[in-house]
C-alpha cells in the first residue's frame, strides 16, 4: 500500500525563514549601525515591497488589475496631513487612522468600479485616482495644486533627527514585513485556498461555491486601507504632499506593476525578487533618466511575453523552489 506524508515546509523554506528572521533582526537594529542614506533607501525598499505585495494580492490572486492604487497612496498622505494639521493628531497615530478612513472611502468606490469588469475595471480605477488627485488640487487648505509641507511644529513630534529617521525607518520596516506576513498568513488560511482557486480557475471556483464577488470586494477594501497606510508613511518620509506626487500613476502604480510582473505575479516571492531587481536596476541605470524608463518598460514587456510568470515563476517551475509554503506537498513512500 502506498503511504504518503503531507508537509508544507521544505528545507529551502525553513532556511529562508531563518535567513528572513536574521535579516529582519539586523535591519531593526540598522539605525544604530547604518548611515541615514541607507535608512532612507531601505525605507523606500520596504515601501515598494509592501505596495508590490498588496498589488499582487489583488491582481495575482483575485484578477483585479488596478491601475489606480495611487488613489489610496495619495489619500493616505492627505489624510495624515489633515489629521496632523487640523486635529493635532500625532503623525504616527495618523497612519492607522488613515488606513481606516481610506478603507471606509473604498467602500463606495468599490461599489462603483466593480461595475466595470476586466480591463475596464483597470481604467475605471485610474479614473477614480484622477478624481482624488483633482479634488486634492482643489483643497486650498492643503496647498491646492502645489501641495504643502509638514510644518516644523509637527515634525518635532517625531523627535530629533536621529529618532525621526529611525522611527520612520522602523515604521517602513514594520509595514513592509507586516504586509508580507499578512499576505502569507492570508494565503495559508481558508481564504487563501479560495484565492488560489480563483487564481487557477474562476469558473471552477464558482462551481465550488466560493463567493468570488464577496471575496474580491473585501480584499479590495482591505488592500485600499493598507495601501493608504503606506501612503501615510510615504508622506512622512517626504514630509510633504502634493497632488501630482502623491497621486502619481508612475511612482505608485507603474513601477509597482513592473516589479510584480518582472518578479512573478501570483506568487509571494515574486514581488520580493521584483523589488530587488527594481532597486538594482535603479541604482545602476537611474542616471540614464528616460532611457532607464524605456528599458524598464521593455523589460516588463519581454518578461510578460517570454515568461508570463516572471523570474520567480520561471525558477520555481524549473527547480521547484518555494520559500513561502502556502500549499501542501505530497511525498509518496512505497
Amino acid at each position: 500500500m502506498t503511504q504518503f506524508t503531507l508537509s508544507r515546509a521544505t528545507l529551502a523554506s525553513r532556511i529562508a525563514g531563518l535567513v528572513a528572521l536574521v535579516v529582519f533582526g539586523g535591519l531593526a537594529a540598522a539605525p544604530w549601525w547604518a548611515s541615514s542614506a541607507f535608512l532612507h533607501l531601505a525605507g523606500e525598499f520596504a515601501v515598494y515591497l509592501a505596495l508590490a505585495t498588496l498589488w499582487n494580492l489583488l491582481a495575482g490572486y483575485t484578477g483585479l488589475v488596478s491601475v489606480g492604487q495611487q488613489a489610496y497612496v495619495g489619500l493616505g498622505g492627505y489624510i495624515t496631513f489633515s489629521l496632523a494639521l487640523f486635529f493635532g493628531v500625532h503623525p504616527v497615530l495618523a497612519i492607522p487612522l488613515a488606513g481606516l478612513v481610506a478603507a471606509l472611502v473604498a467602500v463606495p468606490v468599490a461599489a462603483l468600479v466593480f461595475r466595470l469588469s476586466g480591463a475596464y475595471f483597470a481604467i475605471g480605477s485610474w479614473v477614480m485616482a484622477e478624481v482624488f488627485r483633482l479634488i486634492a488640487a482643489q483643497a486650498t487648505a492643503l496647498g491646492g495644486g502645489s501641495g504643502i509641507s509638514l510644518p516644523a511644529s509637527v515634525t518635532k513630534a517625531l523627535g530629533g533627527k536621529w529618532l525621526r529617521e529611525a522611527s520612520i525607518f522602523w515604521l517602513a520596516l514594520a509595514l513592509g514585513a507586516g504586509c508580507l506576513a499578512l499576505v502569507y498568513l492570508l494565503l495559508r488560511s481558508r481564504i487563501g485556498l479560495a484565492l488560489t482557486a480563483i487564481r487557477d480557475s474562476e469558473v471552477a471556483s464558482t462551481s465550488l461555491g466560493i463567493r468570488i464577488g464577496r471575496v474580491k470586494h473585501v480584499l479590495y477594501i482591505l488592500v485600499a486601507g493598507l495601501t493608504a497606510m503606506i501612503g501615510a508613511l510615504i508622506s512622512l518620509q517626504k514630509l510633504r504632499v502634493s497632488p501630482d506626487a502623491a497621486f502619481s500613476v508612475n511612482d505608485w502604480t507603474a513601477f509597482v506593476i513592473f516589479i510584480v510582473v518582472i518578479g512573478g505575479i501570483g506568487t509571494i516571492e515574486g514581488p520580493i525578487l521584483g523589488t530587488i531587481v527594481y532597486f538594482l536596476l535603479r541604482e545602476f541605470l537611474a542616471d540614464f533618466g528616460t532611457l532607464y524608463l524605456l528599458f524598464l518598460g521593455s523589460l516588463a514587456i519581454v518578461v510578460m511575453l517570454a515568461a508570463p510568470k516572471g523570474l520567480w515563476g520561471y525558477a520555481a517551475e524549473r527547480f521547484g523552489w518555494s520559500l513561502f509554503p502556502v500549499g501542501y506537498r505530497i511525498t509518496f513512500k512505497d
Binding site: F258, T290, L291, I301, M304, L305, P308
Partner: peptide, 28 residues
Amino acid sequence: NRTLGGDLLPPLLVSFGLSVILQNGLLA
C-alpha cells in the same frame, strides 16, 4: 497578438509597458 489568449493580464500589462515606452521615447 502574442498577448491575446483569454487571460486579462498580458494585453493590459504589455500595453501599459508600451505606454511608458512611448512617453519616455517621445521625451527623449
